[in-house]
Design a protein around this nucleic acid. Structure first.
Lengths: 163, 163
DNA sequence: GTTGCAGCATTGACATGTCAATTCGGAAGG
DNA sequence: CCTTCCGAATTGACATGTCAATGCTGCAAC
């Protein structure tokens, strides 16, 4: 009793939260715009092409791809539509499964990925890895894991309850 | 020489990077959807209303507001347009400056902010603060600061060079 | 067999972001 | 006076995300 005012973060905790989230977003934006200018790929394109490039035949079922990169189906569908227009990938109805689509990285998609990959990884190193000491990296690893564990338990996005 | 192959992150560093960025995004999304369902405000709305609520007369010049919350002008303009349609804010041409617009939080905007604020802060505590030990929080604070310092030096978004 | 549900993918409507013009009116230089 | 430039803000075109329908087809219950 008399201590439920502890439901709100302190001023300092709030500052740390904002710094955390803004820093991550700034980094992500910066990496994304570098990638864009160096290869005409967005980070979304990059994730998709990374998964496809590593898959046998450069091909994955749409739903597997969604699971692999952790996207919602509809987001992936929209994105694949845009990528198909730019000839980065191709979609063909899948033979074995009547429903289901095979997504394949085209030659030009794979070329764009190869072109973007090296500068992108270099940028990750320059903007992220080199900013931190090995200890900071290790702490950050722990911290991210703790946050994800907590989030997974606490907020499973309410996608359950299908009965 | 013979060591410039160190321009790329190791497998582990890359994993930490991806975990970091994906965790931050997942948290941000989760907080955002809570806020949305509890107050019909997006995180963007929240940032804008927070700044305005704390300002004298609940009013700020558009450009000051942009600087305060760190948004690009055009982004703010679009967002204010949407918020104005929902009667959360009002825009009036500024008296002293011929160019320039005063942005004011309406009564209903302030009410929405008050309604969203407490649950939002509670969510920050639940999803972020409570997931971490005090040491982890402190480390994270350092780490964010290091990343921002490095980013600021390395990639000032190329907005300089006005002469 | 037909009814209806379940699973995979797409679609449409709309919110949000970025980038490159564009508008607008005052200040400078001629 | 006229041209040019500048700064504040907006606009338009388009990329990206989310949410709630919608198509489509097999399979299971009846």
């Amino acid at each position: 009793m008399a201590e439920n005012h502890r439901t709100m973060p302190t001023r300092d905790q709030l500052r740390i939260w904002r710094d955390y989230i803004e820093t991550a977003q700034a980094l992500s934006t910066s990496l994304g715009s570098r990638l864009q200018s160096e290869s005409s790929l967005s980070t979304g394109d990059y994730q998709v092409l990374l998964a496809l490039t590593e898959a046998p035949q450069h091909t994955l079922r749409s739903s597997e791809l969604a699971t692999l990169i952790g996207w919602e189906r509809s987001r992936l569908s929209h994105h694949l539509g845009r990528m198909e227009k730019r000839h980065l990938i191709r979609r063909v109805p899948c033979a074995d499964d009547v429903h289901g689509v095979d997504v394949t990285a085209t030659e030009s998609g794979r070329a764009a990925f190869r072109a973007g990959s090296v500068p992108h990884l270099r940028a990750v190193r320059e903007l992220f890895v080199e900013a931190l000491t090995p200890e900071q990296l290790a702490h950050l690893d722990n911290t991210s894991a703790a946050l994800r564990r907590h989030l997974g338990v606490d907020a499973p996005v309410a996608k359950e309850r299908a009965t």
